[in-house]
Design a protein around this nucleic acid. Structure first.
Length: 710
DNA sequence: TCACTGTAATTTTTT
DNA sequence: ATTACAGTGA
């Protein structure tokens, strides 16, 4: 078949990647170099040249968004639906395998997924059941331990602590008890999805042979983000004869803190001998000036495979650096630039290192009536009220789901206090029962006080009635019934707070989401289970209604994969970015990559902002310009200077700058009164002066804060 | 069960 | 400064 139309649209490097004929291909795809395009064209090429059938191809991504985009672009390119072709996230594909082969994976058919929050609660219970001190064995710490183990493929029984290593031995025992808890109550957490799917293929020879034979081509996006278990799972699925086509960028690896191993990419050529490496360095996104800055910065990293972006396009406007004197000034500068921006607001992004920085930008944009949207925060299916309703659904279909039981036994409050719940837990522990069974047992053996017995009985009746009533009810009708009859809705209506109103609306939205889910549901799987899995694996968007055409605010991590015409990279200060914690942990190179990611988001216009001071932890903090700005040759940057006099925080008086203050100088401040200079830093416009006033010491910025020499 | 109080921590986040 | 959370007392 003639595939020239497919190939001709590509540049030489892209073409080499798409038509690579070695069994294993590594595509080093720089930012904005057409990585998704290459993946999609590769699949199309495999199909159109007859090398593969759709059902022989597996394409894996990290996020649902990336998976959806790939799927959509594939359909467009092929001009037909892609039946039998598997495109999905690691978790999505692994979950699919586990649902198909639940028996072989030793899972109950209706197993449920624990999200991070559920997992944390479960671990907390486990720690308590082992009678451990929660201060010493904090659930958070245990959670990260367990997930790290699972990411590396270790079960509790595989750990081999030295006999003296009490810490590890204790962790092992918690991990082990948690494994039993999950097994007993039929739930799996996110890391477990991957681990179980890996073990399934590893230990079941029949399935292994089947899938190795089936998937002749495996394609992986964002390969630099794979962790150990994902890597092993890929190797296993590919087997001896499967072709691996992986795309990634070592310079954009920013998730090592959640287990990503950049080494997987760096070692690929060594691990898969018969391979081909293709570099995509031509950038179709940014101006020459922006790329020059990006290249100069990332060149400071030692451990990289090496790559330099270039463009056919124009140099564009210079990359600007703005020095603010505090975070409000930084925000004001950004907001004013955005006001003057001639274009769509959704093409403008404000990027920062920590979410706490967003507040000030919000204020500045709001006062100027510029619409904005902040990304991040709680997503729809993670909201407490939504999870409460889902927990009802879970408990109704599977009474032994202790996580769900704990969550709703007293939600809404029905007079079952901590003491009663603890007695149920104790009975469950003693008899090896689920909380549901333990409640029944205590009811039968008069184990409750009269009052709590009545309450627990009523709760069980409620769940049983739901179960009865739901036999032939559609999913959304079940959800409506839970909202109405569980008492959840009344509580919110009664409270009458603004918060409760929002929660109430979210429950309404849940019902609508369920209806939509049913309408688009495929195959004959149980809709309730499928919906619950959907809720866990695709937590949805943060905000229900997206405002049209608004400025985009997000952390640098969230910005990966996106692009904007105008980008403000803010808070470029030592200690904030690079973050002080990363300096301690020795992950400076990853911080630099994060900065590189931020820079390469910009198409036309890029501002690097930093502030001389900002409030951090309730204190005004002074810090130096980030080394990331200093690492870029000055000739690539253009500094935007403040006028030498301007309005200050205390009014509209114009203050002369460039006064020099010395230790011991008597000074006067328009608010704090008379004082003496204790020490100072810097010179000229931005001199920081530490002054002793009668009411205490204060750091001020000379010339800006209403300070005068007496 | 709720309200108050003291203490400690406070990067990044998908599935 | 802000917040979250455990502990205490009514």
């Amino acid at each position: 078949m003639d595939v020239s139309h497919l190939i001709n649209a590509l540049n030489p490097a892209q073409r080499a990647a798409v038509t690579a004929d070695k069994p294993h291909t590594l595509v080093l795809a720089g930012a904005g170099s057409g990585k998704t395009r290459v993946l999609v064209h590769r699949i199309a090429w495999l199909l159109l040249t007859g090398q593969s059938h759709p059902h022989q191809i597996l394409a894996v991504t990290f996020t649902n968004k990336a998976a959806k985009e790939m799927q959509a672009r594939l359909v467009t390119l092929l001009a037909q639906p892609t039946q039998g072709l598997w495109v999905g996230t690691f978790h999505g594909i692994a979950h699919r395998l586990l649902r198909m082969h639940w028996r072989e994976a030793n899972l109950p058919q209706n197993f449920q997924i624990l999200d991070n929050d559920d997992q944390l609660r479960a671990l907390k219970r486990v720690i308590q059941s082992l009678q451990l001190d929660e201060k010493k064995w904090t659930p958070k710490q245990v959670q990260s331990f367990v997930n790290k183990c699972k990411d590396q493929g270790s079960r509790a029984q595989n750990l081999q602590p030295e006999s003296r290593d009490m810490w590890l031995r204790q962790m092992q025992s918690i991990y082990h008890t948690y494994e039993e808890y999950c097994q007993r109550t039929g739930v799996i957490d996110f890391a477990e999805i991957l681990l179980k799917a890996y073990e399934l293929i590893r230990d079941n020879q029949e399935l292994q042979a089947h899938y190795q034979q089936r998937f002749t081509d495996i394609l992986v996006d964002e390969f630099q983000d794979t962790n150990s278990i994902q890597y092993q799972w890929l190797c296993l699925l590919a087997g001896k004869h499967g072709r691996l086509f992986v795309v990634g960028d070592d310079d954009q690896s920013i998730y090592s803190w959640r287990g990503a191993q950049i080494e997987n990419l760096q070692n690929f050529p060594r691990d898969f001998p018969d391979n081909q490496v293709v570099k995509l360095e031509q950038n179709y996104r940014s101006t020459g000036n922006i790329l020059a800055v990006a290249n100069a910065l990332i060149a400071h990293n030692k451990t990289r495979l090496g790559k330099e972006l270039w463009t056919d396009g124009a140099d564009g406007e210079p990359v600007f650096v703005y020095k603010a004197y505090d975070e409000h000034n930084e925000a004001r500068f950004v907001a004013e630039k955005i006001q003057a921006w001639d274009g769509n607001l959704q093409e403008v992004a404000i990027l920062y290192r920590t979410s706490a920085q967003s507040r000030v930008f919000e204020d500045a944009l709001m006062t100027r009536q510029l619409p904005y949207r902040i990304y991040g925060g709680l997503r729809f299916y993670e909201r407490a009220e939504v999870k409460d309703v889902l927990a009802y659904l879970r408990l109704i279909i599977h009474h032994h789901d202790d996580s769900a039981f704990e969550r709703i036994i007293n939600t809404p409050a029905r007079g079952i206090g901590e003491k009663t719940v603890e007695s149920i837990r104790a009975a469950a522990r003693a008899k090896g029962l689920s909380l549901w069974q333990a409640s029944e047992y205590l009811l039968n053996s008069q184990g409750f006080t009269k009052r709590s017995g009545t309450a627990v009985f009523a709760f069980q009746q409620l769940i049983l009635e739901f179960a009865e009533q739901f036999q032939n009810l559609a999913l959304h009708a079940q959800i409506d019934a839970i909202i109405k009859n569980s008492g959840l809705c009344e509580v919110y209506l009664k409270e009458g707070k603004e918060e409760s109103q929002r929660r109430f609306e979210n429950l309404d939205e849940l019902s609508i989401a369920a209806q939509e889910f049913e309408a688009s549901a495929k195959d004959g799987n149980d809709p309730v289970t499928t919906f619950l899995a959907h809720a866990a694996l695709e937590a949805g968007e943060g905000q229900s209604k997206s405002v049209e055409n608004c400025v985009q605010l997000m952390t640098l991590h969230l910005a990966k994969g996106l692009e904007f015409n105008q980008v403000f990279l803010c808070g470029l200060e030592e200690g904030l970015f690079p973050h002080e914690n990363s300096l301690k942990e020795g992950s400076l190179e990853e911080e630099r990559r994060l900065c590189y990611v931020g820079i390469t988001r910009a198409r036309q216009s890029l501002y690097l902002c930093h502030s001389e001071s900002r409030y951090r932890y309730g204190q005004r903090d002074f810090s130096n310009m980030s080394r990331f700005i200093q690492e870029v040759p000055a000739e690539l940057l253009e500094e935007i200077r403040l006028r030498s006099s301007y309005h200050n925080a205390f009014g509209n008086s114009t203050i002369p700058a460039c006064t020099v203050y010395n230790v011991g100088d008597e000074v006067k401040h328009q608010v704090f009164g008379q004082g003496v200079v204790l020490e100072y830093e810097g010179q000229g416009d931005y001199m920081r002066v530490h002054v002793l006033f009668s009411e205490g010491k204060r750091w001020l910025i000379a010339g800006l804060a209403g300070l005068e020499r007496v």
